[in-house]
Design a protein around this nucleic acid. Structure first.
Lengths: 344, 344
DNA sequence: TGTTAGCACTCGAACAATTCGAGTGCTAAA
DNA sequence: TTTAGCACTCGAATTGTTCGAGTGCTAACA
């Protein structure tokens, strides 16, 4: 177990390193006003902290740098309290003050404010598409063979897909089919859509429409695999501001991950326990993120976490500020969404 | 006017520099098999070329590097012929071989193949939204105050927007209104939609529906300013592979432009004369692109250019190959789209 | 008159040597 | 237990040196 003095030293080392990016030496440390003992004492303590794995040297006679274990301890136990300025709070609030029309715009704006307030790269994940319920389905024929199938959810989200129509089916049939869908499937969560279509609707269709099955199958297929929901990024280029990424070789894998979007998407989608979570360095599973920390927070409507927002930065990240900002945005976002869903 | 020998030397210098990225000296040049004279002669010629502004020195005793004027001349008059390999042609063809369902996927794939074949950053702009015609309009009420307005175009593109509904209007009115729209506005180009709505439809609406005007205005407004069409990027991180951008300071403004998307969008939208266009270095208006060249090509349906595809790279770009690839992709894309539009 | 060989000169890149400062660990005294 | 002092280490910055690839210029040559 660490002594109080060791904790103090660890905290000051990490705080200083986060601020400066430079290895912290015993003399620098002893000059801090929070620290009352000599550099020699500090050296002894630092030697112990190093042996315990909380800090490291970059080379034999260098100052100390936090290890991942050190950051982990810091994040779990030593975070200095942080308050947002009035201006920050105001900025965040203004994002959510306007009337919401489109969920996607809102998520984009959330990402923007996050990267603006932190100077890191931010990511926002929209509410899982499958959570929402069917409000209306519509099929608009384009020509003899193709039509656009449109699904409107109760959240106002519109999903559409071009589908092929068998030649044996005419416009009348199509209309009948859509009517049956809308009668029977209103309010069904999209996630259950496939099942309901196969069980409840198939029978009715069979009675009214010839050749219903090939279209039905196409529809079921396309609707069951909705486009991956969108991930919204902001401040991608902020990554380049970090001195630890001043070397192109080190940014490239990172930018590749970010450009891909898919991996990040999956990573965030997994995040569904409430609250803030911090992944430091190698705790991240994705290769290329060894020098990064990812901080995620979920937002919810009522009690149910719907999606996540996140900040990606170097392991030497301003954890305290980021977590505070993230919490604030998440809770404002949750509030805005809750209000919005209630009005639906 | 340049002599034949000067042209030859200029071409060889640029070819070599594009390949190697290193300043080209007289001795290196004299060893090339295309060149039959001594390094001293070449030095004299190079001095002339430099005086004329086609090449530059990086420092007083260095080899020569093409100037923007040099690149311009090269692109206009000296491009070495370039043929695509069978494999390349095959790759391009395979992108357009599949049945097209969604325009956006197609554009995304076009961008991908471009960046894959060139190792530069590529950009694809979808057909201008306003070109297409109204196929069907639909309004789906979400609750008392809001509804989703959906517009389907003849190209299968779906545009949607959440709109507010005045409380005095009920579901029946809404339906009537939509019916009137669909009767009267079918086939109207979206660009004319606003006008037609105000002239042709307003009268009819007035006779049938109370309070039609506030909704109508909202609709007109939202539909008249459709979301900016999407720009598709691919290979953003390829920028980092270029040695001229190995310095973070030089990439940052560039990545910022790319991240913004808006400026690039405008730039490409302006491009509506047929064929390939090359902008070299300072010919680009955007700040941050001084070290870049942008090569754009338009694709068309029938005779009308609809959109553009482009490659963004360093001024030291493989112009010949890029232009060839771009031409090929543009023409295959045009063919695919033409076929597709005809089937609509 | 155009071409080329030769030569002195320039400059950047690469490398080694040097210095400087911030850091360390250890020891002995307070 | 703390701290002053000291020898030692190492990276970063600075300086000097060498090397090679380049240039421009001049004079001789075809």
């Amino acid at each position: 177990m660490l002594t109080d003095r060791q904790l103090l030293i660890l905290q000051v080392i990490i705080d200083d390193f986060i601020r400066s990016g430079q290895p912290v030496g015993s003399r620098t440390l002893s000059k801090k006003h929070q620290i009352a003992f000599s550099s020699a004492t500090i050296r002894n303590e630092m030697a112990d902290l190093e042996e315990l794995g909380y800090i490291e040297k970059t080379h034999i006679s260098s100052g100390r740098v936090p290890s991942e274990k050190g950051y982990r301890y810091y994040v779990d136990h030593l975070l200095p309290p942080q308050r947002l300025t009035r201006a920050d709070i105001q900025k965040i609030r203004s994002v959510f003050a306007e009337r919401i029309y489109e969920l996607e715009k809102l998520m984009q704006k959330s990402a923007q404010i996050l990267s603006e307030l932190t100077n890191y790269t931010s990511i926002a994940l929209g509410p899982a598409f499958k959570e929402s319920k069917l409000k209306r389905m519509q099929i608009v024929p384009l020509n003899e063979q193709t039509a656009v199938a449109i699904v409107v959810t109760d959240t106002g989200h519109v999903e559409n897909r071009v589908v092929t129509i068998p030649s044996s089916m005419d416009a009348g049939d199509l209309e009948k089919m859509v009517n049956i869908f809308n009668e029977r499937l209103n309010g069904v969560p999209l996630i259950d859509l496939k099942e309901k279509m196969e069980t409840e609707v198939a029978d009715v269709l069979r009675r009214h429409i010839r050749n219903y099955d090939s279209v039905l199958n196409t529809l079921i297929e396309t609707l069951d695999a909705p486009e991956e929901e969108k991930v919204f990024f902001a401040g991608k280029a902020n990554m380049l501001n970090q001195p630890e990424f001043s070397d192109i070789q080190k940014v490239r894998p990172l930018l590749n991950i970010i450009e891909q979007e898919k991996d990040i998407y999956r990573l965030l989608r997994k995040q569904n326990q409430k609250g803030v979570r911090v992944s430091i360095g190698h705790e991240n599973e994705l290769r290329g993120m060894e020098n990064c920390s990812l901080i995620t927070a979920t937002y919810s409507v009522g009690d149910e976490p719907l999606g996540a927002i996140a900040i990606l930065g170097p392991t030497r990240m301003e954890y305290s500020r980021v977590i505070t900002v993230l919490n604030r945005v998440a809770s404002d976002l949750s509030a805005a969404l809750t209000k919005w869903y209630q009005s639906q």
